[in-house]
Design a binder for these strands. Structure first.
Length: 469
DNA sequence: ATGTGC
């Protein structure tokens, strides 16, 4: 569509040349289908991010990129540390939104007839929907521990095991977190939402392993074709949202005092080594820890529920937990940097996770829309080109309101049921906003990154049951 | 994404 502005670098990789106030070129990963569907706003957002001070190498967009607050969702941008910037817009309101993948040890065939009651049971046991409930209600002192220690604290409380932490990004805890940098209002919202799914694109899905591409991995991990899998997509709920709201307002006030030109106010940033920068970073990490704790509580609840309901046949084990809305301190070529990933997943082939008796490059889960399941990817060397990042999903094609107008809840549920996917939802928007037609194709996203050599697919799953807020 | 608003 916008081929004139994009220069083909190599198959499925395009560049927006550096012009005007841009400090670096932009780069976007896309196959032909994705390229046709690129939103013009995403291109300008890539350019806006490229104009931020100190940005290293490229302003990047993954194939699932779509329009977001300041930065595109599906955007990756790195800045030097300590002499560089950090920007809430490059992280997203839902701090440490992420996806968790679990195996169950049971075959789909065994429980085929129970998928509907199983999905309903998930729906009854997991608090979901806007502003709704919690699995565990901590007191204020406990919440502080959760903000500083994340899933590690939750596992110590008995909700999970050591292996859960080993297979979780950052072992379920970002150390540089400070509960003191989180407002009372944010904490208040968090107290009642620990262990809850939320709304929007958040979901829990029951999937079946449909195709295996890397038998070496699956053999060691004990995964088999036809195995029932579970996927949880959720984040830091109202707490993370409030942290972002608070800090955007603080940083906006600060930046107004300075003589700084912003192409877009939503790109508001602070220098990472200032008092504000350090406090924002620790508040953001506190939000990230809350999200780890949140996903851990839900998976533990599901684990006990599954073993009870299926009379101990099930063994629910974590495969991976991938953050996709976070900025992390990392190093590249011996230099310290802060990588912003907003709707993008960290993917470093050198980072290992143990499955069975062997260690493998930590895998990355890429879910599609409600109708399409997921791919489990293994990062490859080429990820050095993306600051070690991969896409986080299929990526929206239509805005929420647009999707709501176009798709009706009952039509979509019927369509999905015909494809063998049972959906249990809290609100009608939960289905119409998230209709498969509102998303890009998962296979296009996966094809883009595999052809470029950023990753290869380990396995593919197809959905059979889904709960939504 | 979100008790959806400066």
């Amino acid at each position: 569509m916008y081929k004139r502005e994009l220069r083909l670098v190599s198959e499925n990789l395009y560049e927006i040349e550096k012009k005007g106030s841009m400090n670096v070129p932009g780069r976007i990963y896309a196959n032909d289908n994705i390229l046709r569907s690129i939103d013009i706003n995403v291109l300008s957002q890539i350019e806006n991010v490229a104009s931020l001070p100190g940005i290293i190498s490229y302003s990047l967009a993954m194939p699932d990129a779509h329009w977001g607050y300041g930065f595109p969702i599906g955007g990756v941008a790195a800045f030097p540390f300590p002499d560089g910037i950090i920007s809430p817009g490059g992280i997203g309101y839902d701090i440490n939104c992420g996806v968790r993948l679990m195996k169950t040890g049971i075959t789909y065939r065994e429980v085929q007839k129970k998928i509907r009651p199983l999905t309903d049971k998930l729906f009854q046991n997991i608090p979901l929907g806007l502003g709704q409930g919690a699995i565990y209600r901590p007191d204020k002192a406990e919440l502080s521990k959760i903000l500083s220690r994340g899933a590690q604290y939750i596992v110590e409380k008995g909700f999970g095991d050591k292996e859960d932490l080993q297979r979780c990004d950052s072992n379920g805890c970002i150390p540089e977190a400070d509960a003191e940098a989180v407002s009372d209002r944010a904490k208040e919202r968090g107290l009642g939402q620990l262990g809850s799914l939320g709304a929007g694109n958040h979901f829990i899905e029951i999937d079946v392993v449909e195709e295996i591409f890397d038998e070496h991995f699956t053999r060691e991990a004990g995964i088999f074709k036809g195995e029932l899998f579970l996927m949880i997509h959720s984040g830091s709920r109202g707490l993370g949202h409030q942290i972002t709201t608070d800090w955007i307002s603080i940083l906006m006030k600060e930046i107004r005092k300075k003589d700084i030109f912003l192409r877009d106010r939503q790109l508001v940033y602070t220098e990472a080594n200032t008092e504000a920068g350090k406090r924002y970073f620790s508040a953001m990490n506190a939000g990230a820890n809350f999200a780890f704790a949140n996903r851990q509580l839900m998976s533990h609840k599901i684990r006990t529920m599954f073993t009870q309901y299926l009379s101990n046949q099930a063994r629910v084990e974590l495969i991976c937990d991938c953050c996709h809305n976070i900025a992390m301190k990392e190093s590249i070529n011996g230099k310290n940097i802060i990588v912003h990933r907003k709707g993008a997943t960290r993917a470093d082939p050198k980072e290992k996770t143990i499955y069975g008796n062997k260690s493998f490059s930590s895998p990355v889960i890429v879910p599609g829309s409600m109708g399409s399941g997921f791919h489990l990817l293994s990062p490859e060397e080429k990820c050095a080109d993306t600051f070690f990042s991969l896409p986080h999903g299929a990526g929206r094609l239509l805005g929420r309101k647009q999707a709501c107008r176009k798709f009706k809840e009952n039509d979509i549920k019927k369509e999905l049921m015909n494809k063998g996917i049972y959906v249990k939802n809290y609100s009608s928007e939960g289905v119409s906003e998230e209709a498969p037609g509102a998303y890009k194709g998962l296979e296009d996203v996966v094809e883009t990154v595999t052809k470029v050599g950023l990753a290869r697919s380990i396995l593919r799953g197809r959905p059979v049951g889904n709960i939504k807020g």
